[in-house]
């Protein structure tokens, strides 16, 4: 979408702005619990565009406290409590919290003028929601540059955004969204995760070759690998 050569500079800037808003929204939904302000937006001006994108926010209708409470419980179960779908690149890539992927991502943030500051304990820079929000921020910078006719600056930030999406999100985030959506019990999160997956694939398909896209698709399809067990393998210690 953003690479479309027929778009005018104005159109491109407008589209970047829209992408910025979309990534910011997805990042916000995955990074923290829904609060009253977000709920108002989801029920109001965002209802129609979200519905078009496949997210029916009618599931958030009803008593505010109950809705927010249910959503918070689902958020914790999905992304916070032990046993959840750990939303961190480090966990997905290394099996441990706060490893090199967190450093890499933090460097990306710093190099682009952002610093990570957690709102709750136990949050790290490589949270998928924060990373999506960062993509949104880069889109925003690009949109501003285009609006100010700083074409070279826009190209430069577009290139950086592309690298970030491919290098830091491409090999795992869409697959993670699929897994998380599969176990989500709340329809809102199921739909938002599914939307996030679609948006990421769209983004990636605009950034890489068909061959690379197939490689990324395979990487994201990672499933459990069963190893053959030898029932005769026993030791005196009982192992």
């Amino acid at each position: 979408m953003t690479e479309c050569p027929t778009l005018t500079q104005f159109d491109a800037g407008e589209e970047c702005g829209a992408q910025a808003g979309l990534f910011a929204l997805l990042g916000r939904c995955l990074e923290a619990e829904i609060d009253e302000r977000l709920l108002t937006a989801l029920r109001g001006e965002l209802r129609e565009p979200l519905a078009e994108a496949g997210v029916d926010s009618a599931c958030l209708d009803g008593d505010i406290d109950r809705v927010l409470g249910d959503a918070a419980v689902e958020f914790a179960a999905l992304f916070v409590v032990p046993g959840a779908a750990s939303p961190y690149a480090s966990t997905f890539q290394t099996g441990a919290l706060f490893q090199e992927p967190a450093d890499r991502v933090a460097r990306w943030y710093a190099d682009n003028g952002f610093a990570f500051r957690n709102a709750h304990s136990g949050e790290f820079p490589d949270h998928v929601g924060t990373m999506l929000a960062f993509v949104g921020k880069l889109y925003e910078v690009e949109a501003t540059a285009l609006a100010e006719s700083r074409v070279e600056a826009a190209r430069e930030v577009r290139e950086r955004r592309g690298r970030f999406v491919v290098e830091e999100l491409g090999s795992w985030a869409p697959g993670w969204c699929r897994v998380a959506a599969a176990v989500a019990e709340h329809p809102f999160y199921r739909q938002v995760l599914a939307l996030t997956e679609r948006v990421l694939w769209e983004e990636l398909s605009n950034l890489v070759s068909a061959r690379r896209l197939r490689e990324l698709s395979a990487a994201n399809a990672r499933g459990p690998a069963r190893m053959p067990l030898n029932p005769d393998y026993r030791k005196a210690s009982g192992l």
């Binding site: 918070a72 419980v73 914790a76 916070v80 961190y88 441990a96 919290l97 490893q99 709750h120 136990g122």
Partner: peptide, 29 residues
């Protein structure tokens, strides 16, 4: 490995459902 265990509890949690039901809300310290 205790430090970086992905199943470590990293934030205070308040019970939301029945006790033992496994429903929690994240709260701050």
């Amino acid at each position: 490995q205790h430090v970086y265990d992905p199943d470590r509890i990293m934030t205070p949690l308040m019970r939301a459902g029945a006790r033992g039901e496994g429903k929690w809300k994240r709260i701050s310290y």
